[in-house]
């Protein structure tokens, strides 16, 4: 791979997005990838290999998390980009936007604790046959921070059956031994679901913040593998 052929990430920025620089830092300084910010009013982005929709509070999340962002011009580009097979990852608020935009199935409810939750959580990688978690071992237990108000994933019974049949569930909340139960479920998500992909497996949404755990000094570098997996699958 020649130097200028490094994978190129577009990081979307909506008013109220606040994890864009965290993603930029990881992609550029830790992975050595190329990346640029993409303002929500843009409708066309050249040359990029993958899209990151970072976390934050787009439009303050005053109505519903992610509800307003989906009307931005950039979202029709995201739709087009994804339909051609481009990789899209939505983290936290980015996941909520993907759900609101119906690029991923289901919806987010308020945490059943009715409180914002910020802490490290254990997660089980339940699927590795996708471009986002291919670098993990199947069933691997990892640690990532969760930081959200509305991360209580909901999907109706038929939808749940479908995403399970298609192995679209990628991450699940668990405890350090891998047990998935109510006590290791931080927010009430159905079946402890923390991250899912679409049927075509090129769109990934997750509530935990992989970009916040890519360096040992921050307490964990378990999140790095997600971005590495993406880089490896772009080549």
């Amino acid at each position: 791979m020649s130097f200028d052929k490094k994978p190129y990430f577009g990081i979307l920025v909506f008013p109220g997005t606040n994890c864009e620089t965290d993603c930029f830092h990881v992609l550029k300084n830790i992975l050595g990838a190329r990346c640029k910010y993409v303002w929500h009013k843009e409708s066309q982005v050249e040359d990029i290999n993958a899209i990151v929709i970072p976390g934050g509070f787009s439009y303050g999340d005053y109505l519903r998390s992610g509800a307003v962002a989906k009307f931005s011009p950039i979202m029709s580009f995201v739709r087009k980009f994804a339909s051609k097979g481009g990789l899209v990852i939505g983290i936290c608020n980015g996941f909520q936007i993907l759900l609101e935009e119906s690029l991923l199935p289901g919806a987010m409810l308020r945490n059943n604790t009715l409180k914002f939750i910020c802490r490290y959580s254990h997660l089980k990688v339940t699927d590795t046959d996708n471009p986002f978690t291919s670098g993990y071992k199947s069933g691997e237990i990892i640690r990532m921070p969760i930081r959200h108000n509305e991360g209580n994933y909901y999907i109706d019974d038929n939808g749940l059956l479908e995403i399970k049949e298609n192995n679209q569930v990628i991450l699940k909340y668990c405890d350090s031994s891998g047990k998935e139960d109510a006590s290791s479920n931080p927010n009430g998500s159905i079946e402890n679901i923390a991250g899912i992909c679409n049927k075509k497996r090129n769109i990934f949404g997750l509530m935990p913040h992989p970009e916040a755990c890519c360096e040992k000094i921050l307490g964990s570098d378990d999140g790095k593998t997600i971005f590495e997996s993406m880089v490896n699958n772009i080549i």
């Binding site: 109505l63 509800a67 009307f71 289901g106 919806a107 909901y154 999907i155």
Partner: peptide, 8 residues
């Protein structure tokens, strides 16, 4: 489209 999320 905006004020509610028909899924929930």
């Amino acid at each position: 489209k905006l004020l509610s999320n028909p899924n929930i």
